[in-house]
Amino acid sequence: MATDLGGGAATDTADRNPMVKAEAVHKSFGHLEVLKGIDMEVYPGQVVVLLGASGSGKSTFLRCINHLEKINAGRLWVDGQLVGYRQEGDKLYELKEREISSKRAEIGMVFQRFNLFPHMTSLENICEAPCQVRKVSKDAARTRARQLLDQVGLADKTDVYPAQLSGGQQQRVAIARALAMDPKLMLFDEPTSALDPELVGDVLEAMKQLAKDGMTMIVVTHEMGFAREVGDQVVFMDQGVVVERGVPTEVFANPQHERTKAFLSRIL
């Protein structure tokens, strides 16, 4: 199965606990087995880029990490805690919705289709979760939201509705919205796939800045430039398994597996 080339991160990871750890994760939708045993470790501060053709299970795996999808077998930990379950002895107990929600609050997620709340302005979109979930005061949330909008280069777009923004601007608001919860991990599900080519750059720039600031990130994308420049590790998936993983420059320059070679030749 997977040829594990080691952590691959620039930093030494041996003595640290992984932020995300997956052991033989399986996921099926009915009879369709989408994930067939995924192993993975992502360390704090690492940027891991998931590559692969559509239908290879990258997005599903990402969604399993914050329990938007339930895994059928295997184990998945985030920051040392099981995702969606509590283990006592040999027994697994399903977590209550409230517990799942509070864990999700610590993981930011950015979607391909942005999923901004269309009935709220940029500022309201960003303030919503801190105010509702963390019970932050309105003023504090607004101050922080302005900071975050500034950080993604949209300081002048506080009071406009999503429909008045371009796709690239919407996605940057979505990133700011996720960051407002001070997540310890950010998941990006093809964040630039729904954007016009000339709008991709701004979003990638915001993500690069985030990586530079030390955020732990798992990114599903087809942007090879981003993977090469920002990724500490690329993981190539195909038909529900990890085919190859390693440092981006090595994998891109010298892919070991046939399927990786075929994929890269199509996309590079």
Binding site: L68, F117, A129, V133, M181
Partner: peptide, 17 residues
């Protein structure tokens, strides 16, 4: 759009909220 509910869930909002 189901994506709305998903986005809210991902932000840690409960069913009621």
């Amino acid at each position: 759009d189901p994506g709305q509910q998903e986005a809210a869930s991902a932000l840690g909002m409960g069913r009621g909220a």
